[in-house]
């Protein structure tokens, strides 16, 4: 029993040593453009779901690479697959296709 009323809190920092990089590599084999994002934010700026849900393809990609999968899935659940982000991406990333691939690869984990 904790008699103190406080305890060690888990770190929210990113520790790259503990990130499982294998699944992201698997994603890159299908979606080589996944790593070409330059974080311009065009996707979230046009996203009709961003305003109320915080959805952002840029953030999803970043979180997946930084070992914050849970946060990425939470964002992705707001995607309506409208494809507006695909139209505006200056790097020509097929974001719609990318999101579907992410769902497929990370599917097992999500269902747990």
């Amino acid at each position: 029993m904790n008699i103190f009323g406080f305890r060690i809190s888990p770190s929210s920092a990113i520790n790259l040593d503990n990130v499982d990089k294998e699944r992201f590599r698997e994603l890159c084999r299908i979606e080589p453009d996944a790593v070409r994002c330059m974080a311009c934010g065009s996707c979230s700026a046009t996203c009709p779901a961003a305003g109320f849900s915080g959805m952002s393809v840029r953030k999803v990609l970043l979180y997946l690479q930084r070992g914050k999968e849970e946060e990425a899935f939470k964002l992705m659940s707001n995607c309506m697959l409208c494809g507006k982000c695909t139209m505006v991406c200056p790097r020509g990333i097929n974001t719609r296709h990318l999101i579907l691939s992410i769902c497929r690869i990370y599917d097992k984990e999500e269902k747990k």
């Binding site: 920092a13 990113i14 520790n15 790259l16 040593d17 974080a39 970043l62 979180y63 930084r66 914050k68």
Partner: peptide, 12 residues
Amino acid sequence: EDTLAGKPLKVT
């Protein structure tokens, strides 16, 4: 700091 994630970061 990973300024795009807004979180501190470390790596060995």
